[in-house]
């Protein structure tokens, strides 16, 4: 099946289609922007982009061998596949969007599409064992790791908090409260100081909580109780 025959081409296309679908299925269930079809379509395209240069190489050494003998062989079989990598990079960039408090949405989807495409390139090349292992790894990373990662981050002493407040002077009140909670302020990033267009002044605080008081929900609710605070949000990227 490593040989380039009609049957092996069908098998490779089918493998890419199914492996892409397997990754997409888990994402669709979680109501992510890219669903089952997107993953399948992109996998088909990527597998074709590897099969196409293999076909061209066969032709250059077979029916078109006379031209090759005359002009010389100038051919790079990896060229098309390499452009798939950049092409899907662009597509991924289209999904990534900026949210409140310098947060970014869609990054996981973009990278999942990217990983799926790279897996399908392997499928097109007939690197079957790699495809099966890659599909398993991608599915595990996407579906099992997210809750683990979040749970881990919520236990850390480091916390990033996005706060909206009434006016610029409130930053002092907020930092005072944080110090009172024995939190060490690592960084403050003030996003805006004026109230305009229904948006309140806001800032992002990066804190290192004290060893004794390191409950994330504790500091969040303490901050929310301040009269000047309009909203509090833990930022988990």
């Amino acid at each position: 099946m490593r040989d380039f025959t009609f049957a092996s081409v069908c098998l490779r296309m089918l493998l890419a289609f199914l492996a892409g679908g397997a990754v997409g299925f888990g994402r669709a269930k979680k109501a992510q922007p890219a669903g089952l079809r997107t993953y399948m379509l992109i996998s088909i395209g990527a597998a074709m982009s590897v099969l196409l240069p293999i076909y061209l190489f066969e032709m250059l050494n077979g029916p078109w061998a006379d031209v090759t003998a005359e002009v010389g062989l100038k051919f790079d079989a990896s060229r098309m596949a390499s452009q798939v990598v950049t092409g899907i990079g662009f597509l991924g960039a289209g999904i990534i969007m900026k949210a409140l408090h310098q947060q970014v949405n869609g990054l996981t989807t973009a990278t999942a599409l990217f990983a799926t495409v790279c897996m399908s390139l392997a499928a097109g090349a007939g690197f079957y064992e790699c495809v099966i292992i890659a599909a398993a790894v991608i599915i595990v990373v996407l579906n099992v790791m997210a809750p683990l990662e979040n749970a881990f981050k919520r236990r850390l002493r480091d916390i990033t908090i996005g706060v909206e407040f009434t006016c610029a002077e409130d930053i002092n009140t907020i930092t005072d409260l944080m110090k009172q909670q024995q939190a060490q302020i690592v960084d403050i990033d003030i996003e805006s100081t004026e109230q305009k267009g229904g948006k309140y002044p806001s800032a992002v605080f990066i804190l290192k909580l004290s060893r004794e008081k390191h409950s994330h929900s504790g500091i969040l609710s303490t901050l929310a109780e301040l009269p000047c605070v309009r909203s509090v949000q833990e930022l988990i990227s």
């Binding site: 982009s49 790079d76 662009f90």
Partner: peptide, 11 residues
């Protein structure tokens, strides 16, 4: 290279 133009179509 016969695949160069095609390759750029992909990106």
């Amino acid at each position: 290279d016969i695949s160069r133009i095609s390759a750029q179509v992909i990106s």
